[in-house]
Computed example of a mutant assay.
Amino acid sequence: MPLSEHEQRLLDQIERELYAEDPKFASTVRGARFHRPARRRRIQGIALFVVGVALLVVGVMVKALWIAQVPLASVFGFLVMFLGVVLAMMSGRHPAGEARGGRAGVKSKSSFTQRMEERFRQRFEDQ
């Protein structure tokens, strides 16, 4: 569900305040390091797909790799291609917190929320 204009403005304001107050934390949270594993998996999936295509073609061309009229290298190549496509497609599906699945993501999310609330309270108590 998209945010309303008011909610979007509040979110932008909170983000600006976070950058102003703690730029190191803000850059860590927003940094590209969270996107690297997804990009790496996508590249690995594409590479697997290319290797699978090569195996598929080699398996059809080289009759010595056939066993009982079945091109085993081609079948294996197809499976590698399929795995590569699945890996590439699933790399960007879940954010980092949901990638663990189940309750682990919920616990880390709630502990993060608790830490942020505690920091928020400390700011007002220190003033």
Results as ranks from 00 to 15, higher is better:
Q13D: 12
Q13G: 10
I14L: 12
E17F: 11
E17T: 11
E17I: 10
L18S: 13
L18R: 08
L18F: 08
L18I: 12
Y19K: 13
Y19C: 08
A20F: 07
E21D: 11
D22Q: 09
P23M: 05
K24V: 15
K24P: 00
F25I: 13
F25H: 07
F25G: 02
F25Y: 05
S27C: 10
R30C: 07
G31R: 03
A32R: 09
R33H: 15
R36T: 03
R36E: 01
R36F: 15
P37E: 00
A38C: 07
A38W: 00
A38D: 10
R40N: 09
R42T: 04
I43S: 08
I43H: 12
Q44P: 06
Q44K: 12
Q44G: 14
G45Q: 04
G45W: 01
I46K: 00
I46M: 06
A47V: 05
A47L: 13
L48I: 09
L48K: 07
F49K: 02
V50L: 15
V51Q: 03
G52D: 02
V53F: 05
V53W: 01
L55S: 03
L56H: 04
V60C: 05
M61I: 09
K63S: 14
A64S: 15
W66L: 07
I67F: 15
Q69P: 02
V70N: 04
V70E: 06
P71R: 01
P71S: 01
P71K: 00
A73C: 06
A73Y: 03
A73F: 06
S74F: 05
S74D: 03
S74Q: 06
G77K: 00
F78N: 03
L79E: 04
V80I: 15
L83N: 04
G84H: 05
V85Q: 00
V85T: 12
L87N: 08
A88H: 06
M90L: 13
M90D: 09
S91I: 03
S91R: 01
S91E: 02
S91K: 04
G92A: 04
R93D: 02
R93L: 15
H94Q: 12
P95F: 02
G97W: 03
E98P: 10
E98R: 07
E98V: 07
A99G: 09
R100P: 01
R100Y: 07
G101A: 01
G101P: 02
G101T: 04
G102A: 04
G102V: 02
G102E: 03
G105H: 05
V106Q: 13
K107E: 07
K107Q: 10
S108R: 15
K109F: 14
S110K: 14
S111E: 12
T113L: 14
T113E: 15
T113H: 11
Q114V: 10
M116Q: 05
M116D: 06
E117P: 03
E117V: 08
E118N: 11
R119F: 11
R119Y: 07
R119T: 10
R119M: 13
F120G: 01
F120Q: 05
